Amino acid sequence: MMSPRSLLTAVSLSLISFVAVADPLVVENAHVRAVPPGSSTSAAFMTLRNPGEREVVLVAAESPAAEVAELHDHQNVDGVMQMRQVPQIVVPAGGSAALAPGGLHMMLIGLTAPLQEGEPVEIELRFETGEAQRIEAPVKRIMNHDH
């Protein structure tokens, strides 16, 4: 039986070594936008890094914090930014995809409870392969420059 400390070391080491059971993506800077109480939607942002040799296709997401999680993108349609649902987000082999304000992001629709700043939101990423990866994204206030 490993001590918790050596287990932690093993976990951090396994992020570096590529093993078959590893999660398909390395998720960095995941966070969920803090929204005012009473808001029914929020958005999740993160950087998805693909250390593998095959592209990884994210096709869906689920979160207990919301009734529905959808993949969205902002697209410029005749000079107007519109939010559109996208069927998938492709993370190229050895590359990354940024889910960031103003671009690709995940919408959390029908929040099941108010989001508490600093609390983690569990999100499950689902891939074309049928694999799933669970992540935790803390709720953060995102400063907008427009006051």
Rank of each mutant, 00 (worst) to 15 (best):
M1I: 09
M2L: 11
P4G: 08
R5Y: 12
L7A: 14
L8K: 07
L8C: 04
V11D: 02
S12V: 14
L13P: 00
L13A: 15
I16Q: 10
F18S: 15
V19S: 13
V19K: 07
V19H: 10
D23V: 00
P24T: 03
P24R: 02
V27S: 00
E28K: 11
E28M: 14
V32Y: 05
R33M: 09
R33H: 00
A34L: 14
A34M: 09
P37F: 12
G38D: 06
G38H: 05
G38E: 09
T41S: 13
S42G: 03
S42P: 08
S42Q: 07
S42Y: 07
A43P: 00
A43W: 09
A44D: 01
A44P: 00
A44C: 12
A44M: 15
F45Y: 15
R49A: 10
R49I: 10
N50T: 03
P51G: 05
E53D: 14
E53Q: 12
E53P: 13
V56C: 02
V56K: 01
V56L: 07
V57A: 03
S63D: 01
S63E: 04
S63A: 07
P64R: 01
A65M: 07
A66P: 09
V68M: 09
V68A: 07
A69V: 15
L71V: 02
L71H: 07
Q75M: 13
N76E: 12
N76D: 15
N76F: 02
V77M: 02
M83A: 07
R84E: 06
V91C: 02
P92Y: 06
P92I: 04
G94V: 08
G95Y: 02
S96E: 05
S96R: 12
S96A: 09
A98E: 10
L99C: 03
L99K: 10
P101E: 03
M106N: 05
G110D: 05
G110C: 07
L111Q: 08
T112W: 04
T112L: 06
P114C: 04
L115K: 09
E117F: 05
E117T: 10
P120Q: 02
V121Q: 12
I123N: 00
E124H: 00
E124W: 02
L125H: 00
L125T: 03
E128S: 09
T129P: 05
G130P: 11
Q133H: 01
Q133A: 02
A137G: 03
R141C: 04
I142E: 13
M143N: 12
M143Y: 01
D146V: 13
D146N: 11
D146G: 03
